[in-house]
Design a protein around this nucleic acid. Structure first.
Lengths: 170, 170
DNA sequence: TTTTTTGTTCATTTTTTCTTGAACAGATTG
DNA sequence: CAATCTGTTCAAGAAAAAATGAACAAAAAA
């Protein structure tokens, strides 16, 4: 039987087997989306925490620096994976994990993916301008036309699909 | 007007403005999926190339080492973003870019995403076993049950959605 | 007001990832 | 066969990303 994390580890140090396993899971999948390990750890611990946790509990139990914890929580909050909740009689901020997959996906797409696509679109605008100003001549004109146009299609398509992704998941 | 890349740069060195702009586009968006810059450059150059290119042309024009070019091409081939084509009378391998977004997505999902999800699933199996063997007691049992179960739902959902993603894009 | 608590910022260090280049192996040519 | 060409591998170096910890600011308590 698992020890109750809250009661067994009163000094806020170390992790139970259950907590370790949950965090391990998040660490392994989060690499897919290019998020630092420490951020996955923070989220993982909050995910299995029955009650909101303050920053110093997170840093003590995960053995990470205050700076990492602070920055990690900021990132997680930026796309709504973690919320700060008011705990009566407590001065410190307490954090809790958002567990709705749809919201997690939506927040991540909005904050992490969309901005990159915007940047890509800017590059594409530049490219199109360049291409319209002076098209290459010769036998490969049709080829270049096709390739340039295709990039535009990709860009449009991904902007269409991305918002849908949240819906599909839910 | 653009100079024809093939004719203007006979020494296989340097890039035209068009090529640079296309490569720049790929470099900017490819970071989203955690692929090295050099790989984006290889793909970008092949994408705008009217004819298949051999390895040493790629490395010369992109000014990258033979090792990088070789490894980059291998990665691109592994998920079908680049194919090698036979060029009559040519001894060297020549490469050409796959431009069907659907195939690109499918290959990437199959080779890069799926394996990570499998790894996540293994962690989850371990977690479930741990949890079944010894469930925590106390007032938070229902909470833990919910959280553990939810992970399973996420895992299943993502396995359902991922293959669909290819279809949606097309 | 002074002291303590809480959290942020950012220069530095550490770790991870990417790139290079040289050694190697296989295939082709002379 | 030797010489050349082509491509791969991998140890070492370079670059990029992440984590640390100390200095700082803001808010609350004493």
């Amino acid at each position: 039987m698992f020890a109750d994390p809250a009661s067994t580890i009163p000094d806020n140090t170390g992790l139970s087997a259950l907590e370790t396993a949950v965090i391990d899971f998040f660490v392994s999948i989060v690499r897919v989306v290019g998020i630092p390990k420490s951020v996955a750890e923070l989220y993982g611990l909050l995910y299995v925490a029955p009650r909101p946790l303050p920053l110093d509990t997170l840093m003590q139990r995960l053995r990470m620096s205050k700076g990492s914890a602070s920055q990690g929580i900021r990132l997680l909050r930026s796309f709504g994976a973690v919320r700060s909740v008011y705990v009566p009689g407590e001065r410190r901020d307490h954090f809790t994990a958002e567990v709705e997959l749809k919201r997690l996906a939506a927040g991540f797409i909005r904050e992490e993916i969309q901005p990159r696509l915007v940047q890509g679109q800017e590059k594409l605008d530049h490219l199109n301008h360049l291409y319209e100003t002076s098209r290459p001549s010769g036998p490969d004109t049709a080829f270049y036309d096709d390739r340039i146009q295709r990039l535009g299609t990709w860009s449009r398509r991904s902007r269409e699909v991305l918002p849908l992704l949240g819906e599909i998941i839910a």
